[in-house]
């Protein structure tokens, strides 16, 4: 049994085979391998008795269910006007310079992916970003440097 098969089997056993559990299972795969590859989608379809097109259809609808390979740390910077007014563009430049990538790209070591996202719900404490599931608020270029450096040194 391949790793993907094993992972999907465990997730399906944990959440259940009914289609109402599909979101949780797709999220489970993304949590473990940062994106949904074809193999995972086909395997989920087989386990849940759905067509791969149905699984892909659901997966491709949701921004956080990435169907493209992502880095270990996915950075989602809020692009709503209120964060923009608080200096989001400077934060974006800082991230681009630190990571040497543009929006939508992943660093060559597969560590970071830089993305923009819609309102994160931190408008009173902008600019804000998510790194995986963690929220960072009231960002300054200095703060961003510290956060990124800390993650880089983690492993």
């Amino acid at each position: 049994m391949s790793n993907t098969q094993q992972m999907v089997k465990e997730l399906v056993e944990k959440h259940g085979r009914e289609r109402t559990n599909l979101m949780a299972i797709l999220q489970g795969v993304v949590d473990q391998q940062n994106h949904l590859d074809d193999q995972a989608i086909i395997e989920i379809a087989r386990e849940m008795d759905l067509s791969a097109a149905q699984v892909y259809g659901t997966a491709s609808f949701y921004t956080f269910l990435d169907i493209k390979p992502r880095g270990e740390y996915v950075i989602r910077l809020c692009r709503t006007i209120t964060c923009d007014m608080k200096g989001k563009r400077e934060i974006l430049h800082t991230l681009e310079n630190l990571l040497k990538v543009n929006i939508g790209e992943t660093t060559p070591d597969n560590k970071f992916t830089l993305l923009e996202t819609n309102c994160l719900g931190w408008c009173h404490k902008g600019p804000a970003m998510l790194i995986n599931n963690k929220a960072y608020t009231e960002l300054t270029p200095e703060k961003v440097k510290e956060i990124i450096t800390e993650i880089k040194h983690k492993s």
Binding site: N118, C119, G121, C123
Partner: peptide, 11 residues
């Protein structure tokens, strides 16, 4: 599913 830009009270 509080997603309206500028809303953060449900959180």
């Amino acid at each position: 599913d509080e997603g309206e830009p500028g809303t953060f009270k449900d959180r």
